[in-house]
Amino acid sequence: MVHMNKRDMILITVIVLLAALSYILLHHGDGDNVVSVYVKGSLHGTYDLSVPRQIHIVGDNGIINDIEISDGSVFMKYSDCPGQQCVNTGRIDRNNESICCAPAGTLITVHTAKEPDYDAITK
């Protein structure tokens, strides 16, 4: 019976501790239930998803974005932009989902405990 030597012990301990630490660092904000709004790359504000409110933003090119938080989710209610992709994204409430209005330079990201659904998982 070979026993683990000192090198093994050190390696395994270091790697396992690093993994556990990064797990904690990565997941400690999971239950936050917040929405972050970025305009032109900088944080405009972080809002509680459970508190209904309207956010009015004037982004790049003078484009107006009206964001609404209600029913625990967030959506782009109105936008001046030509494509309307942000409006068509609809409501989002799953972790790391986002709405982007590229012409206005607006990015909306949610951080919740709700994990995203996968389209498919391959082995």
Binding site: H3, M4, N5, R7, D8, L11, I12, I15
Partner: peptide, 9 residues
């Protein structure tokens, strides 16, 4: 010179 445990790990 890790043992077989370290190698497999």
């Amino acid at each position: 010179r890790f043992s077989i445990y370290g190698v497999s790990f």
